[in-house]
Amino acid sequence: MFGISPLGWIHTLGSLPAIPPAFYMLARHGRIVPRSTPGAIYFVSMLIGAATVFLVAHQPVSYGIGTVTILLLLAGYGIERFLGSTRTARYIETICLSLSAFLLMLPTVTEILRRVPDGHPLVTDLKSPLLLGAQGALLALLVVGLTAQIIYLARQGKTAANRS
Rank of each mutant, 00 (worst) to 15 (best):
I95A: 13
D118A: 14
S85D: 14
P34S: 09
S85Q: 14
A75C: 12
I112H: 13
L141C: 13
F43E: 06
Y91H: 09
R155M: 00
L74H: 02
F43R: 12
M25G: 07
L103Q: 10
L71P: 05
L130F: 04
V116L: 15
L131H: 02
L132C: 05
S5F: 05
R35W: 11
L132A: 11
D118T: 13
P117A: 04
V144W: 12
Y42N: 04
A137D: 07
L146R: 08
I151E: 05
G76R: 00
L73Y: 03
A75Y: 03
T147H: 14
S15G: 14
R31H: 08
L146I: 13
L83R: 14
I19T: 10
H58V: 11
L73S: 02
G145W: 02
G157L: 00
L7K: 09
L142S: 05
W9Q: 09
L131I: 04
V144E: 07
P17W: 02
L126V: 13
G84L: 05
M46C: 07
L106E: 15
L16E: 04
L141V: 10
L97S: 07
R155L: 00
P107S: 01
H29T: 07
M105E: 11
S85F: 12
P34V: 10
G49T: 04
Y77H: 12
E111A: 12
I112G: 09
G84P: 04
T69K: 03
Y42S: 08
S62P: 02
T52G: 01
L131E: 01
T86V: 00
L97G: 02
I112D: 08
V68N: 06
L103S: 07
T94Y: 03
P21D: 11
A22W: 04
V116Y: 15
V56M: 01
A101H: 12
P17Y: 05
R87W: 11
G145F: 02
T37H: 07
I79L: 06
K127L: 12
F23M: 12
L141T: 10
P17N: 06
Y152S: 13
G39I: 10
H120E: 13
G14V: 05
F23L: 15
I48L: 13
T124F: 11
L7M: 15
G30V: 04
M46P: 00
G145R: 01
